[in-house]
Design a protein around this nucleic acid. Structure first.
Lengths: 123, 123
DNA sequence: GCCATTACTTACATATTTGATAGTTCCCTA
DNA sequence: TAGGGAACTATCAAATATGTAAGTAATGGC
């Protein structure tokens, strides 16, 4: 989340993988709350405060950071209304909307196997 | 990757989300190299050394940790052959195989938008 | 004037993840 | 009998990610 030091092994590793589409994608969506936020925004644009209420366990700081990162990566559009008190709305971009089906499938996969495990554990 | 301290905010947050299928799924696949490893194993079982060669920028330690986590989560099956020198093979489980199409889509998505960005940047 | 509101930002402290490096084990081969 | 191979494990030191607490700005309502 913080700026990564040039030339740390961390960033060298990342550069090594820039050729891989999968890794490229993973880097864009691989933050602590990014997918959850995207999923939440699928139902339509929302204000910062709304999101914050939806994720009470995510600190404002974290929410801000994740939203900023998503914005940087072109997955979320941020609109500021010059009002007092301020109003800021977040919406998915086209690119992010395309991820919708994927999120659905991932969620379904989670659902399927979560239940499976519960069943097994009950035996 | 290391044991998480009980009751750290980190783990409290995680508990809060146990009800969400999406989050459940994300937690299983959200390691530094997990998806890449799964993707690599789609072509068939492979030995530790093979994987290590495929990912030269991933240290053995990291590879071990990621594989262990995947094993724990039931995504990878580990088979040890009692030979000298040792031989260990890793293969996807059913659950992981189901993720295949998803990985493909994610990769395609990455590919699509990577090129888009390159085009834009060139203008 | 004083407070509430909203969407942050800043500074500092912890927690967690990853890397670097060295060492282990056991047999087989030269 | 020294060395090599495979798949790790252990330990310590970075680096990164996240949490906590407090503060900011501008304005309308009291």
């Amino acid at each position: 989340m913080a700026a990564r030091k040039e030339n740390s092994t961390y960033s060298r590793n990342e550069k090594n993988l820039v050729e891989c589409d999968l890794t490229y994608a993973i880097n864009k969506i691989g933050g602590r709350w990014k997918l959850q936020i995207l999923s939440e925004l699928e139902s339509g644009k929302q204000r910062f405060g709304d999101l914050s209420k939806k994720f009470p366990f995510v600190t404002e700081r974290m929410l801000t950071l994740q939203l900023r990162a998503l914005e940087q990566d072109g997955l979320v559009k941020r609109t500021v209304y010059a009002e007092i008190p301020p109003r800021v709305e977040y919406a998915l971009t086209e690119m992010a909307i395309e991820l919708g089906p994927l999120l659905k499938q991932l969620s379904d996969w989670g659902s399927r196997h979560r239940h499976h495990i519960l069943k097994v554990a009950a035996m």
